[in-house]
Amino acid sequence: MAGRRRWTTDEILDVAAELLRTSATESFSVRRVAAALGTDSSSLYRHFRSKTELLRALADRVLLAAMEDHRPEGDWKQRITALALLVRDAFSRQPQLAGAWARYVSGGNGSRMVMEEVLEALGSSGLPDEEIPGHYHRIAFLIASLIAFEAGGGTVPPEEREQGRELFRVAVLGADPERFPAVARFARDLSPLQTDHQAAFESILAAHLARIEAAVRAG
């Protein structure tokens, strides 16, 4: 009798990534990955002990691929901004994993490479060493939150997205000016949250980095 095929970690991750592209994270499971491979779950548990561990590995592989060709350039703010946009672009191609990355965090080499770049950039900013970890955590939280929020909108079907925009227009333009005077005042200038994500991403990150720069100068 022929022995059961042994799947490599990369083969499992390839199939799992493809499965995630066509299904929601909530319905994703080790059992479904095993079924797609034509095997049973027990053969996969030698590589990944749980769905969470598998999602962490997938998210870390996204980070690792993004960082392979990354070359730091510019000052510390330019380095962090370039890194944030690189990670944002990487997860935009598989938005289902962005939420998993923000929720579970990864601990592989991809994650370490991102941490190393942010910490090195902050180290060249003029911040005292004892303040760098705190700033790193706030930057990581900000980037992960923004990417996960944007990814959540990216997984919504086009017809549902358009329906949401229409509901937004009705809610804003139809607001009673006596009850909602501020909404009525700015109605024609307000946009749904799904509008121009990159500009919002860059401006929010830039404002945060500017605060760090101001603190360095004041210090």
Rank of each mutant, 00 (worst) to 15 (best):
G126C: 00
F168V: 02
K51M: 07
K77W: 08
M115G: 13
R185L: 11
D176C: 00
L190F: 02
R71P: 02
G152W: 05
S111K: 05
L64C: 07
G123C: 07
R32H: 04
P177W: 08
A98Y: 00
A24G: 13
P133K: 06
T25H: 12
E150Q: 14
R138F: 10
A82W: 06
I147F: 10
H70K: 12
R185V: 02
G153H: 12
I147S: 10
F149K: 12
H70Y: 15
V156F: 09
F149W: 13
E18R: 10
S145A: 13
A16F: 01
P177A: 05
T39V: 07
A24S: 15
G126S: 00
A35K: 14
L205H: 00
P192A: 04
A151M: 00
P95D: 00
R179A: 12
G152S: 11
S106D: 03
S29D: 03
I143S: 01
G3M: 14
F149P: 05
L119E: 09
Q96L: 06
E68C: 03
Y136C: 03
F141Q: 13
A140N: 14
L37T: 03
A210L: 07
R165F: 07
S124I: 07
S92T: 04
V172Q: 03
F149A: 12
L122D: 01
Q198N: 13
E68L: 09
I147Q: 11
P157A: 09
A182V: 14
L142A: 04
